[in-house]
């Protein structure tokens, strides 16, 4: 167990969404209230200066988890602690560079809001904005342009500058490069890496792209239907994936130069997070399903000889 307090820690974090069908739908179609358990009991931590990669397929709750951590959503249960305190203190970089900047605001206005919230006096904001722009690879000439005048990659740089202006200790990056062209993706990933080396900021990197996560993360957490199923230092996770889901996920990645013939095939699709199955969430698609998997939720097991590599799977529990 860790001695010092990590920068950010979540304790039993849950976030449910309730949908209440309309009066007619309830009376005539007999539809019931539904609970989507987007995040259902997550304990993760992020160290100072560390990048934690969060991977999973669409609908697994990874974006919701990121948004709870920066305080966009209030948790249904559990806590997010920033160095032991509950006030949210993280910034966010968004997936869609076209929707994440207000189309009616110039770059100056966009950065100005961040600087104002940080308490930078009015007369210093211009200089500060110029510094920020230069840091993310843009020039002062861009200060009075509107988002539509920029390419996707440049917009994402502005988004990074906006987050940076708050001098955050943690930045939650929600699919920061998945909407960008390959050549531009690398530029942004290198930018984030450079920022971390310079300022010691921590990242929660949310991505469905395992190659990106492998490249940029120190540790990785794999999420499935609202729960973390495996977490480990990056190398250890990619070399020795221990949860059947992680194994399938890793073998499904198209890799440059590999033939792709020898892969584990997952059957079926991701079940919905509305009323997930009791017991292990992955049992419906798991090739190693046992009786116990349907009965109780697996407890975390640390892989022997691999510190920090934890897996939530009955199969592992029975082995060790």
């Amino acid at each position: 167990m860790k001695e010092r307090t990590p920068l950010v820690k979540t304790i039993g974090l849950k976030r449910y969404f309730y949908s209440r069908p309309g009066f007619l739908a309830r009376c005539l179609l007999g539809e019931k209230e539904r609970t989507t358990k987007a995040v259902d009991g997550v304990d993760i931590y992020i160290e100072e200066g560390e990048t934690l990669g969060l991977v999973g397929e669409s609908g697994c709750g990874k974006s919701t988890l990121g948004r709870v951590i920066v305080g966009l959503y209030a948790p249904t249960a559990g806590q997010v602690l920033y160095e032991g305190k509950t006030e949210p203190n993280g910034q966010m970089i968004f997936q869609n560079p076209y929707a994440s900047l207000n189309p009616r605001h110039t770059v100056r206005q966009i950065l100005g809001v961040s600087l104002e919230k940080r308490g930078v006096p009015l007369e210093e904001r211009e200089d500060e904005s110029v510094k920020l722009l230069e840091r993310v690879g843009l020039t002062p000439l861009h200060l009075d342009q509107y988002p539509r005048q920029f390419s996707g990659g440049q917009r994402q740089r502005i988004g990074v500058a906006r987050a940076l202006a708050m001098r955050p200790r943690l930045i939650v990056a929600d699919e920061p490069v998945s909407a960008l062209d390959v050549s531009v993706q690398a530029q942004i990933l290198n930018l984030l890496e450079g920022l971390q080396a310079e300022t010691g900021v921590s990242f929660l990197l949310i991505s469905h792209d395992l190659a990106v996560v492998h490249h940029a993360s120190h540790r990785v957490a794999v999420m499935y239907l609202g729960k973390i199923v495996e977490t480990a230092p990056t190398e250890s996770l990619f070399e020795n994936p221990s949860h059947p889901y992680t194994q399938a996920l890793l073998s499904a990645i198209p890799r440059l130069g590999a033939t792709g013939e020898s892969r584990i095939r997952l059957q079926g699709t991701v079940p919905s997070a509305v009323d997930p199955p009791p017991g292990c969430r992955f049992q419906t698609r798991c090739a190693h399903k046992m009786d116990i998997c349907a009965e109780m939720e697996p407890l975390p097991v640390e892989i022997r000889g691999d510190p920090g590599h934890v897996v939530w799977c009955h199969l592992r529990a029975s082995k060790s």
Binding site: S151, G153, Q154, D181, V182, S183, V184, Q185, A186, Q187, L189, N190, A211, V212, H214, H215, A216, T234, E235, F238, R255, L256
Partner: peptide, 23 residues
């Protein structure tokens, strides 16, 4: 070559070499 250099390759410590500029 540039495109290939942009893709993370599941090998630690291999830096990405982006193509500069825009499409």
């Amino acid at each position: 070559r540039g495109l290939i250099g942009c893709i993370p390759r599941f090998r630690k410590g291999v830096p990405l070499t982006p193509i500069r500029g825009q499409v």
